[in-house]
Each structure stands twice: as structure tokens, then as C-alpha cells.
């Protein structure tokens, strides 16, 4: 058979989505936007404090109804300095690199928050570091987790 020219069909059209944050998610995000505060909720059965607050504790299958105010400081549990290019489905273009992805346990909380840390030198990062949230100015906040710009190392 004669060698065939192999073709591709390119597709780069977005389909917009509207995701519901739900009652607890909306409460969390409005407090973040309006007051610059993190909240979680506590499971009455196992005592675990969840962030984001949620309608059910998975392991207990119990509603964690008690709202708990959390601090804006916490501990870096784990991290990675990301330095390879990829398309961010949030924007459709490349996410700027390098940056540091961090899992942070806010004081008073049992689960982690997935966010960015303002330090990309692996030698200056280690699990256990104390970190603090840096918020965007009030007028720039829109009720998303990105209302927090990043976390900075405080010790």
C-alpha cells in the first residue's frame, strides 16, 4: 500500500460549566471572600474537623453540622515544586511554572487544604514548616479558593 499522509482533527473549543458549591461550600467561600476567614465543620461522631466543610463525614456517614472557625496559619504537610509544562484546564493555556503545590493543615483542622506556597527552592521546604495564608485585597476577592494568593513560610 502507498504510504498515507496521516491526518489529525484539532479540537480546542471549551464547553462552559457551572458547578454548584452547595450550602456548606458557599458558606465557606463567602466567609473567605467577605471576612478573610477559613471555616470547617466537625463530625459529631468521630470528632474530625473538615475543610472544606461538607454535608457528610465519609467514614462515619454522619453530617458534621458544627461549624468551626479555623486560623489562617498552619503546617505544611507535604509539597512538590512543580516544574514541567502542562495545559491548565481552568484556563486552556499553560500554567506558569515553577510553583509549589502544598498540602497545608490549618490550625484546628484535621484535613488539609491544597494550595500554593510562595517558595520554590526545595532546599527551603520540608514537611512540618509553619505557613500563613496571604489573602488578595478585599476588592479582588470573588468567592474562590484563589482569594488566597498563596501561603508564606513564617518560621
Amino acid at each position: 500500500m502507498k504510504k498515507t499522509e496521516l491526518l489529525f482533527l484539532k479540537e480546542d473549543v471549551d464547553i462552559p460549566y457551572n458547578w454548584a458549591a452547595g450550602r456548606y461550600g458557599s458558606l465557606f467561600l463567602t466567609r473567605l471572600r467577605d471576612e478573610g476567614k477559613f471555616i470547617g465543620n466537625r463530625c459529631p461522631s468521630c470528632g474530625k474537623v473538615y475543610l472544606p466543610p461538607r454535608v457528610v463525614c465519609g467514614p462515619c456517614f454522619t453530617p458534621p453540622e458544627e461549624i468551626v472557625e479555623l486560623g489562617d496559619t498552619g503546617t505544611l504537610v507535604s509539597y512538590s515544586v512543580v516544574n514541567y509544562p502542562f495545559i491548565d484546564p481552568e484556563t486552556g493555556s499553560r500554567r506558569p511554572i515553577p510553583y509549589t503545590l502544598g498540602y497545608i493543615r490549618l490550625d484546628g483542622c484535621d484535613t488539609y487544604l491544597s494550595h500554593f506556597v510562595d517558595e520554590t527552592d526545595p532546599a527551603k521546604l520540608t514537611p512540618g514548616l509553619r505557613v500563613k495564608a496571604v489573602f488578595r485585597p478585599r476588592e479582588e476577592r470573588t468567592g474562590r479558593l484563589q482569594d488566597v494568593l498563596h501561603f508564606k513560610i513564617v518560621d
Partner: peptide, 18 residues
């Protein structure tokens, strides 16, 4: 989409944190 996606970075960094 609301709580993970803006910072989640795919399989590679998802494993690197481990």
C-alpha cells in the same frame, strides 16, 4: 472543580507530594 482543581497539578505532582 471548586476545592482541588485550581491547585491540583495532575498525577505527577499528586504523587510527588506523597
Amino acid at each position: 472543580p471548586i476545592f482541588d482543581r485550581f491547585s491540583f497539578s495532575g498525577a505527577l505532582p499528586g504523587l510527588a507530594v506523597e
